[in-house]
Amino acid sequence: MRAPDGPDVMAGEVLLSVANVSLSFGGVKAISGVSFDIRKGEIRAIIGPNGAGKTSMLNVINGFYQPQEGVITFKGKARAKMRPHDAADGGIARTFQNVALFRGMTALDNIMAGRTLKMHKNLFWQLLRHGPAMVEEVEHRHRVEEIIDFLKIQEIRRTPVARLPYGLQKRVELGRALAMEPDLLLLDEPMAGMNIEEKEDMSRFILDVNEHYGTTIALIEHDMGVVMDLSDRVVVLDHGIKIADGTPAEVMKNQAVIDAYLGVAH
């Protein structure tokens, strides 16, 4: 558990709050009346058994899904509908459960793509590759190189990502999200399918991002050890309903959580 900055996070201001959100696909209820909040600067874990609605929740937050009910308040602004483009523009970045990279492009281009919304020079200059557009490209390239250094992926800069091993692909994907300089970073199972060493590296990066850039992070994770180590607070979903919310220690002791994970004796 992360003791040092625990207390002030606990009292911190709310960055995003989800109130009574329900989402269904046809007759299937993916999320029913879930409410929780994410405070500025914290690492918030969302856990739960398979099919609990965790990924659906992330998809609602970044605008991929529109909930049928409920209100989402981000940076003090409540919204009914938001498109992914607006979410990205507002400072929400994310990674995906099954790595979603631009497979035909190099690691560098993938991360540069994360700068899309930060680049504004018009097409005319871009085509000429001169003047303001060139200055802009160089400027952003500089920021991207910092991220590449931070994630220690200098050697694979020019490698098409499809050729990279899975662990590195996940890292490039994190880099692309970081390139957006987000206020809220959503990580969908950042450590799925990794070996212990890769998990440790990734944990380190997540903590560093949180500490150095002050980025608020919401992550879905199955590895309980990782959740205990990384997160300030945990929300537990099961069958689309929130069954627990609190510090990792509190949540682990919660009977409903134990039942959801281990099953209840009948």
């Binding site: 483009h85 990279l101 631009f102 281009d109 793509a113 899309t116 957006m180």
Partner: peptide, 25 residues
């Protein structure tokens, strides 16, 4: 190959959801 919009075009060709997530319209 070389412009931001070109990069966005290739990005869309590779993955719609990833392109959306970085704010490409």
């Amino acid at each position: 190959q070389k412009t931001r919009i070109g990069r966005a075009l290739r990005a869309v060709a590779d993955s719609h959801k990833a392109a959306l997530s970085v704010g490409i319209s």
